[in-house]
Design a protein around this nucleic acid. Structure first.
Lengths: 293, 293
DNA sequence: TCGATTCTCTGACTAAGGTCAGCTATATGT
DNA sequence: ACATATAGCTGACCTTAGTCAGAGAATCGA
């Protein structure tokens, strides 16, 4: 299928899906308060926090949010308390009444989704759910961005932690606390640490360090379990290769463990060839290299 | 998959798709005119016509549309001429300048769809396009409504015309002009003609007529070619059976031609059993019956 | 031909959504 | 202690989107 016909499919879908079904928005209507107010209530219920927090997430104006919050507190749906840590700040929370309204919003939204499925037969419902799940995974992965970050930044630490926890289920593995000298290897000029971010949350990572002789090594490559099967690993791998080339390397190496079957299959498929052991990593059983053009 | 987890999939998709991508709407922004005005421009460019026409399609207030049109004419994007057939009416058309703006909207919308596909690999793009095409077909088919109409109404005639044209590609078939006496069989009290409508356009049809002895016959069942594979035919068949039962019948019969393989497979699958020839239809080769519980 | 109806336009009005400058209270760096 | 910065609030103001009740012209039915 050409990119033009793919584009046409996306546009056609957009039209029939978003134009003809008042998808989420309408759930916020008819609740006795204007849409914007309800949207804010929904946002607070999803994640309480400070006013600034709320502004950041919604992208709304300070004055506007302030007024909406006043309305919500007057209606008894939201409570504002000053933050003991910094008394300029105000903490926003739902009251029990507000929580009840939030639940109602949730229920309406679910009802709306159900109304879409309702006229379909069981088989069609299943087909639709499968198609949307597949589309969801791909759409989300299209929106993932790769960022070069410091290996000791919060995001990087969170990702590596999950990577370590997961490896530990395959073989005994405990690299201890992340150290400053270890992190230095993954910093510029010769190293990099790349984080794949979806909506602010890290969903994949990978580090590059210099081995000398124009060779870079890929380490700590990990993809969030919920994101596998969408081709994110391949995209990350290609991104790391390009980054290695940009930092003046002519080849990349990596090692892995025989238990990580799908990783090995991916390296084979991505143009890596197997080489002899090039380090003394006791956990590694397979060693790969790929020349960078 | 249970209906609850299917609902969850739909909601999750809605969130990532509609909330995070400013799908179509945003294409209308930043064009120097407010969103509503641009939306109307888009609608006019898609299909020119009278003002009332435009109001019907958009569901907007008469005064509101009138004002928007004035703005668009002042900006030189739209031309208003009175309809020679009825000089109360006004015909709305895009000027060349308006057409240029419309093209720009189209281009933006296509660009937006492309931006979604762009970061993906060719294989992922293909998977996404396939998933969305499947979802589109199913979503649209969920929104199709069945209406009992007069067999000589515009919609019914349009559908039957397509049905006839299509049968004629399988074997010589020409029933001539639709006659009043022929139509009478498909009218209440004992007959019905059912039209499946998507967004105002007929996409499938089927007629019921009384054969006596509590038996109804299904005739002229047709599904638009673009709608096959979505289970619409099965839904229509079930709807016709229910209608036959509601009008006091205890069984339905139908005949078909050996060349219509998929129709025969569907009848077999839907609980019909083959019976001996029950009429002298020269085009029919296969005869079916199903008891109605 | 006359009254009713239809089609479009206009004026008056409203609510929602949003922007901006400035205010007060609190926190922070020197 | 002082200047400076930050968090949230308030008042004034604006545009957009939309509603409603007619007015005026054209058409239709009897």
């Amino acid at each position: 299928m050409s990119i033009d016909s793919q584009t046409a499919v996306v546009r056609r879908f957009n039209r029939s899906y978003t134009q003809r079904i008042g998808v989420l928005e309408d759930s916020f209507l008819g609740m006795g308060a204007p849409l914007g107010t309800m949207r804010l209530l929904f946002e607070i219920g999803t994640h309480a926090g400070t006013v600034a927090d709320l502004r950041d997430r919604t992208g709304l104006d300070s004055g506007y949010v302030s007024r909406q919050l006043r309305r919500l507190t007057e209606d008894g749906l939201v409570s504002l308390t000053s933050d003991p840590a910094d008394r300029r700040r105000r903490l926003v929370e739902l009251t029990p009444l507000g929580r009840a309204r939030w639940d109602e919003l949730e229920a309406r939204s679910a009802e709306r989704a159900r109304a879409l499925l309702d006229p379909l037969t069981e088989r069609q419902r299943d087909r639709l759910a499968r198609a949307l799940a597949e589309a969801d995974l791909l759409v989300r992965s299209a929106l993932v961005t790769f960022e070069t970050v410091d290996p000791l930044s919060d995001g990087a630490r969170a990702a590596v932690e999950q990577y370590v926890a997961e490896l530990a289920t395959f073989f005994p593995f405990d690299p201890g606390e992340p150290s400053e000298e270890d992190a230095a290897e993954f910093r510029p000029p010769s190293g990099r640490f790349v984080l794949a971010v979806d909506d602010g949350a890290p969903v994949a990572c990978g580090g590059l360090r210099d081995l000398g002789d124009g060779v870079a090594e890929i380490k700590r490559m990990w993809v969030h379990p919920g994101w596998r099967g969408a081709g994110l690993a391949s995209r990350l791998l290609r991104h790391l290769e390009r980054t290695a080339a940009d930092t003046g390397h002519t080849a990349v190496r990596l090692d892995t463990n025989e238990n990580l079957k799908s990783a090995i299959a991916m390296y084979d498929h991505a143009g890596y060839h197997r080489i002899a052991r090039y380090n003394d990593n006791p956990d590694a059983t397979h060693f790969f290299e790929k020349p960078l053009t």
